[in-house]
Simulated scan of single mutants.
Amino acid sequence: MKVAVLAGGRSSEHDVSLSSAAAVRAGVVAAGHEVLPVTIERGGAWVFEGAELSLRPGGGLLGADVVFPVLHGPFGEDGTLQGLLELLDVPYVGAGVLASSLCMDKIVFKEVLAAADVPQVPYAGVRLARWQAEPEAVTRELAVLGTPVFVKPARLGSSVGIAKVWSESELGPALDAAFAHDSLVIVEGFSAGMEVECSVLGNGEPDASIPGEIVLTGSDWYDYEAKYQPGGMELVAPARLPEHVLGEVRRLACDTFVRVGCSGLARVDFFVEDGERVLVNELNTLPGFTETSVYPKLWEASGLSFPALCDRLLALAIERFETERAVAF
Rank of each mutant, 00 (worst) to 15 (best):
K2E: 12
V5N: 00
A7L: 11
E13N: 05
E13I: 03
V16Y: 01
L18R: 12
S19D: 11
S20E: 08
A21N: 07
A26Q: 12
A26I: 03
V28R: 00
V28L: 08
V29R: 15
V35H: 09
P37Y: 15
T39A: 10
I40D: 03
E41C: 02
E41R: 14
P57N: 12
P57W: 14
G63R: 13
G63K: 09
D65G: 14
F68R: 02
L71N: 09
P74R: 14
G76C: 09
D78W: 00
D78C: 07
D78L: 04
G83H: 09
L84V: 13
L88H: 11
L88Y: 11
V90Q: 01
P91E: 09
Y92D: 09
A95P: 02
G96S: 13
G96I: 02
S100Y: 05
L102R: 09
C103R: 07
K106G: 05
F109A: 14
F109P: 00
F109S: 13
K110I: 04
A114I: 05
A116L: 12
D117S: 14
Y123S: 12
Y123Q: 08
R127C: 09
W131M: 15
P135F: 05
V144I: 11
V144Q: 14
V144A: 13
P148W: 01
V151F: 00
G157V: 06
S158Q: 07
V160G: 02
A163C: 04
A163V: 00
W166G: 11
L175F: 02
L175M: 10
D176H: 12
F179N: 06
A180Y: 03
H181F: 14
D182V: 02
D182C: 13
L184G: 09
I186S: 02
V187I: 05
E188S: 08
F190T: 09
M194V: 13
S199P: 01
G204L: 07
E205K: 11
P206C: 11
P206L: 05
A208Q: 02
S209C: 04
V215G: 02
D223G: 07
Y224A: 08
P230I: 13
G231T: 15
M233G: 03
M233V: 11
E234P: 02
H244G: 07
V245N: 05
G247E: 15
E248K: 15
T256V: 15
G264A: 10
L265C: 13
F271C: 11
D274T: 12
G275C: 05
E276Y: 08
L279M: 06
L283F: 05
N284K: 09
T292D: 06
Y295A: 11
K297H: 07
W299M: 06
S302E: 07
L304A: 03
L304H: 04
F306S: 02
L314A: 05
A315W: 03
E319R: 12
F321M: 03
T323I: 00
E324R: 15
F329G: 08
